[in-house]
Every structure is written in C-alpha cells, then in structure tokens.
C-alpha cells in the first residue's frame, strides 16, 4: 500500500508565513501530521508539500508538478491536510484532491465545512469535517486514517453519516428494506400525522428574475436555446440527449435560419415543425426584424445551443454559467432563451 500525503509549508516544516511562497517539494516518509497518521495506521510513504501563496499565485504550475509526482508514484491513496480553517491551504488541498480524484486516485482530506477547499474538491474526495484549528487534530486523524486505509485496499466505504465525511454531493443507490410503495405509504401517513419527511429534495437553486433591462433601445441581445438547433448534419456532434457540451454558431450577416441549413437534434420532442422552420427553435428572423425596427440595440453575432433533455441540473447550471460568462464578456445585456 502506497500513501502520499500533501501538506503546506507550515505543516511540512518548511517555515511559517515567510515560507508561503515555497515551491512544491517532495519529501520521504511522514512529516508533521503524517506522524500522527502513521500512528493511526496510515503511514505516508511520500510527503509532497507546497507553500500556500505559491499554490495560489502559480496554481497551474504547482498543480502540474504535484500531479506529475502522483503520476509517477501512483499511490493507492492521497491524504490532504488536515487544513482546518485555513482558506489558502484548504483551497490547495481541495484542488489537488479534485484533480487526483479525477485521475482515479482515492483522496481523503480534512477541513472545516465552510473551507473553500470543500467546493474546490467538487465531490472528488472524502472530506472529513474538522474544527477551525489544530486542536481538532487528535479527533480527525483517526477518521482520515481509517478511511484512507480502506480506500487504499479498495474496500467499500459507507455513507457520510456513518463514516464521518461531508456529503460529496453524490447520490448513491442503496437497497431499502421496504419497497418504494411501502415507503410512500409510510411517508404519507407520517405527513398526515404532521411529520413531513422526504427522501429527496430539490438540488437546484431557484433563480430570481433579473431586473428589467434599463434601456432596451441600446441593449445587445443574444439568442440562447436548448432546442438542439445545429447546422444541418450536426457537424460538431451535439448529443441528442444527456448533452455534455453547449455550442456557439455565428449568425453575423444572417437574417434567417433556413430549413435544410439548420435542424434540431433534440431527442425530447417532435422536431418536425422546428426543422421545417428553424427560426422557431432560435428566433433569428423575428430578432432581425425587431433589430431593423430599432426595437433594441443590436443582435449578438452568435447563437448558443445545446439539447436540453435528460440533462442533470448541475450540468445545465454549469452550461448556463459558462454561456453567461461569455455573454457578459461580449457586453450582452439581454437574452431570449427558447426552451422546449
């Protein structure tokens, strides 16, 4: 079993704040808290460390170096921290945990639940919650070591409550001792008795409507759609369902989306009418007409498209954020979003 342990400059013994700019280093055996891990049965074979400021200011380079070491060592598990309430250290732990996790290395980290590292890890690591300072070391190290040893051995790990890690935002299937039918009746009778419980709640956030466009006459308008509208033949292979990408197509100088030139590859509705007139998927004809009448400032020179069918909410939210970031960059102030 090979265990690699990630620490910042302080816990690796490289120095305090004055050493926060330290480049990544690779050390043999356990360092600092690694000794406590060793005592708990999870002795690190290699310790890798980086200064918190260096990681923050040179993330890509630092990460490349650290990941190259992990590639070379191929550990059975990576342990990050504990970073407690330290924001910079926690962030570095979270990013490294995410990238290592995505490369198939099991990762255990530990930090406060509100650490930026929890978000940065994106569910790719088992993050054990800690108190904000080093006093929590004694309680957290055995939990980390226990998880690490079992993950390294490929043994199954239980749920967050049972094992003491933060929910990773994943939903894992489990066999209940009752059918869904019996659970539905049990839940309903409990609800009628005033005890309202649910097995699943909403994960998406509720989007507050944006304020009205202040000056429509000068606004740059963009067309965005999840109707699966693409150039005929789907040259970029937009998936028809479970889409993992959004695409952008230029419409500068184009007044209308002609039938036979654009089509919908959306697998969730009858596309006959949309294919007969793709302007009903992405209303370019109407937008151009209104632009000509100066009903708004100008039309953005591309439309944005994906096929919104069986798309997980998290994926759809990410698409929205990415498209919105690009539209903001292009000084777009309003969007017509056509849904199906």
């Amino acid at each position: 079993m090979t265990i690699v342990h990630y620490l910042n400059q302080f816990f690796a013994g490289l120095g305090g704040e004055e050493a926060a700019g330290h480049e990544p280093v690779r050390l043999d055996g356990p360092q600092g808290p690694g000794r406590a891990l060793a005592a708990a049965g999870a002795a690190p074979d290699v310790t890798i460390a980086c200064g918190d400021d260096h990681f923050g200011e040179h993330e890509a380079e630092a990460l490349a170096t650290l990941l190259a070491w992990l590639e070379e060592i191929r550990p059975d598990v990576l342990i990050c921290g504990p970073s407690f309430g330290s924001g910079r250290y926690g962030y570095a732990c979270g990013v490294l945990a995410r990238e290592a996790g995505r490369r198939g290395i099991p990762v255990v980290a530990a930090m406060t639940p509100d650490s930026p590292g929890v978000m940065a890890a994106e569910g790719a690591a088992f993050v054990v919650p800690t108190g904000s300072n080093v006093a929590a070391m004694r309680t957290v190290v055995p939990v980390m070591a226990g998880l690490a040893v079992r993950l390294a051995a490929g043994e199954p790990v239980g749920g967050p409550d049972e094992e003491g890690y933060l929910p990773r935002g994943l939903r894992s299937n489990a066999m209940s001792d009752r059918t869904g039918a019996v659970r539905a009746i049990d839940l309903l009778l409990a609800k009628l008795a005033g005890d309202v419980r649910t097995e699943v709640g909403p994960t998406g956030d509720r989007v507050a409507p944006a304020p009205p466009v202040a000056d429509v006459s000068s606004v740059r308008l963009a067309l965005v759609s999840e109707a699966g509208c693409v150039p005929q033949g789907n040259p970029d292979q937009l998936p028809t369902r479970h889409a993992n990408v959004w695409l952008r197509y230029p419409i500068g100088g184009v007044d209308s989306l002609a039938a036979g030139t654009y089509e919908s590859v959306h697998a969730g509705f009858d596309t006959t009418a949309g294919n007969a007139d793709p302007n009903r998927l992405v209303p370019l004809d109407a937008a151009r007409e209104l632009e000509g009448r100066e009903a708004f400032g100008s039309l953005h020179d591309a439309f944005y498209t994906t096929s919104g069918v069986d798309t997980p909410v998290a994926t759809a939210a990410k698409f929205g954020q990415e498209i919105a970031a690009e539209l903001l960059e292009a000084k777009v102030g309003a969007v017509v979003l056509t849904g199906t």
Binding site: G159, P160, S172, A174, M175, D177
Partner: peptide
C-alpha cells in the same frame, strides 16, 4: 413502488 432501490447521500 415495485422496487426497493433508493438513493442516499
């Protein structure tokens, strides 16, 4: 309701 699978965090 005919199967017993559910999803847990």
């Amino acid at each position: 309701g005919d199967a017993a699978w559910t999803a847990v965090p």
